[in-house]
Design a protein around this nucleic acid. Structure first.
Length: 428
RNA sequence: GGAGGGAUGCGAGAGUGGCCGAAUCGGACGGUCUCGAAAACCGUUGUGGGUGUACGCCCACCGUGGGUUCAAAUCCCACUCCCUCCGCCA
C-alpha cells in the first residue's frame, strides 16, 4: 500500500499522482480523513490510558500502605476512566481498520516517469525485434490448436473433460516441451537468481501483500475447506517469503526465481481470446523477482526485462516491448513493460511477460524492510518481478513458428538438451 | 487424526497479577586501560505510533486475536506455529 504519510504531508500531490491512474480524488480524501480521525482518537486513548495506569499504580501503593478507603476511591476513579477509555479505543479501532481497508484498495502511485495515457490504447511499443510478416509461409499460418491436435501433443477435449474448458492437457512431446521450457528458463537465470520451489497454495495475507486481495478475489481460486488460495503466479509466494522480515542492507538485492503452476479464474475475461492456449486457467511459468533498495530498482528493472526478452530471442521468436501507460497500469505497479511475442498461426501478438516495478507498494503491504548499514530505522524495500517464461503462449508461438511445410515441428536448438531427443515433432 | 510440551529482546533464558519494556548470561558495538592486543571495568544494544525547535516526553508491542481486572508477560478463551509420542500416508 501507499505510505500513509503521503496523506498527511502531500495530499494534493498524491491525489494528482493517483489521478494519472484514474483513482477518484474522493477515495484518497476519504482515507486521509480516516487517518486524521484515527490519530485523533488514538491520542485521546493514549492520554486516558496513561491516567488509568497512574491511578492503578496508586491503588497498589494505597493497598500496600493499608489505606483501604483511599484504594477503593482510586479504584472507582480508575474504573470510570477505564470505561471512557474502552469507548474511545473502540472508536479508534474502527477508524483504523476502516483506514486499513481503504488503504488496501488505493493503487500504487505511478512512477513520475511512467508513460501517460488513459487506456490500453495509449500503450507504446518501444521496440520490435525480429519481426517480418513476409517471411512466413502458408504452413506457418496454422493456429497452434490445429497443429496440436494434428500432432497429438495438445488435447483440449480431454483437458475439458477433466476440468472444464481452458484447462489444457498436453501429451507426448507437447508435455515434454512444457517441462523443457521451464527448465530452460530456470537454467538461463541461475547465474543471478536462486531457485525456489514454493508452495502453490497460500494463505490470504500472501495474496494481500502482492495486491490480488481484497480487490481481485474473484480472479483467484480459493480452497474453502482450508482457506487457502491457489497462486496466480509465483510472484505471490516469492514476494511473501520475506514478509515481516528486516533484511540486512548487504544482502540486497535478494534475487529469487521459481517455477510454479499458476491458477487464474479469468473471471473478467469470459469469451475473450479463449481459443487454444491463449488464455487458460492453469499454466506453468517461471517467475524471477528481486527485493532491493530504491536506488537498485531501475537497473534491476532493465535487467529483468533483458532476461525476459533474452529467452524469447534465444528461442528465435520475434517480440516487441510495450510500455504500459498509467491508465493501464495494474493496482500495484509503478511502472511496467510487457513483452509480446508474435504467433504467426493466430497472427497475434501474445503477452508473454510482464516486467514490473512495484516501488515499495508490495513491500509495505508485506512488511519487507532492510536495516541500513549506516544505522537508523529500517526502510521499506522495493520489489520487482517479471515472467522469465510463461509456458502456454511460448509453446503456441514456437509450434506455429517452427512448423515445417510437411506439418512437422522442428524445435530450436537451445531447447534440444531438454527435449529427450524429441527435437522434431512429427505427425503420427 | 489422537495425546502431551512449548512460543519472552540479536541469541540463550528468568519472570508470586501492581515497583516488568522486562533479571541474568552470551553476542555485537562504543569507551577506559595498553606500544598494540587479551583480560577487566563502564556504557550502548528493538519495533511502531503520537507530540515538541530541541535533551525529551507519552502510548503500544513478551506468538496472534479476544476476555477478566482499578491494574495482565503473568489469569481465562480461541487461533497460529514449533517440538515429542502414537496412528495414517506419496
Amino acid at each position: 500500500m501507499i505510505d500513509v504519510h503521503l496523506l498527511r504531508t502531500d495530499l494534493e500531490a498524491t491525489k494528482a499522482a493517483l489521478a494519472r491512474k484514474k483513482v477518484p480524488a474522493g477515495d484518497v480524501e476519504h482515507a486521509a480523513a480516516l487517518d486524521a480521525e484515527g490519530r485523533k482518537l488514538a491520542s485521546q486513548a493514549d492520554a486516558l490510558r496513561s491516567q488509568v495506569k497512574a491511578l492503578s499504580k496508586q491503588v497498589g501503593d494505597a493497598m500496600r500502605a493499608g489505606e483501604e478507603g483511599r484504594a477503593a476511591d482510586l479504584r472507582q476513579q480508575s474504573k470510570r476512566l477505564g470505561e471512557d477509555l474502552a469507548a474511545v479505543e473502540e472508536r479508534a479501532r474502527t477508524a483504523q481498520s476502516q483506514l486499513h481497508e481503504a488503504l488496501l484498495r488505493i493503487p500504487n502511485l505511478p512512477a513520475p516517469e511512467a508513460l501517460d495515457g488513459a487506456s490500453e490504447a495509449d500503450n507504446v511499443v518501444r521496440r520490435t525485434v525480429g519481426f517480418d510478416p513476409a517471411r512466413y509461409g502458408p504452413h506457418q499460418r496454422v493456429p497452434h490448436w490445429d497443429i496440436g491436435t494434428e500432432l497429438g501433443i495438445l488435447d483440449l477435449e480431454r483437458g475439458a473433460k477433466l476440468s472444464g474448458s481452458m484447462f489444457p492437457l498436453f501429451r507426448g512431446a507437447g508435455a515434454t516441451l512444457c517441462r523443457a521450457l521451464c527448465q530452460f528458463a530456470l537454467d538461463r537465470n541461475r547465474d543471478a537468481f536462486t531457485e525456489i520451489r514454493p508452495p502453490s497454495l497460500v494463505r490470504s495475507p500472501a495474496l494481500e501483500a502482492s495486491g490480488q486481495l481484497p480487490k481481485f478475489a474473484d480472479d483467484a481460486y480459493h480452497v474453502e475447506r482450508d482457506d487457502l488460495w491457489a497462486v496466480p503466479t509465483a510472484e505471490v509466494p516469492l514476494t511473501s517469503m520475506h514478509a515481516g522480515e528486516v533484511l540486512r542492507e548487504e544482502e540486497l538485492p535478494v534475487r529469487v526465481m521459481a517455477y510454479t503452476p499458476c491458477y487464474r479464474r479469468e473471471a473478467g475475461a469470459a469469451g475473450r481470446d479463449t481459443r487454444g492456449l491463449l488464455r487458460v486457467h492453469e499454466f506453468d511459468k517461471v517467475e524471477i523477482l528481486a527485493v532491493c533498495k530504491r536506488d537498485q530498482a531501475g537497473e534491476l528493472h532493465e535487467d529483468i526485462l533483458a532476461r525476459a526478452t533474452g529467452s524469447i530471442e534465444a528461442l528465435g521468436l520475434p517480440y516487441r516491448v510495450v510500455e504500459i501507460c498509467t491508465g493501464d497500469l495494474g493496482q500495484s505497479q509503478a511502472r511496467q513493460y510487457d513483452v509480446e511475442i508474435y504467433a504467426p498461426g493466430c497472427d497475434m501478438w501474445l503477452e508473454a511477460s510482464s516486467v514490473s516495478w512495484f516501488s515499495d507498494y508490495q513491500a509495505r503491504r508485506a512488511a519487507i524492510r532492510y536495516k541500513p548499514l549506516a544505522g537508523g530505522p529500517p526502510n521499506v524495500c522495493d520489489t520487482l518481478n517479471g515472467s522469465a517464461l510463461a509456458v502456454p503462449r511460448v509453446w503456441a508461438a514456437l509450434v506455429e513458428t517452427y512448423r515445417q511445410p510437411d506439418g512437422s515441428v522442428e524445435l530450436p536448438a537451445p531447447l534440444h538438451p531438454y527435449l529427450a531427443g524429441q527435437t522434431t515433432i512429427r505427425v503420427i
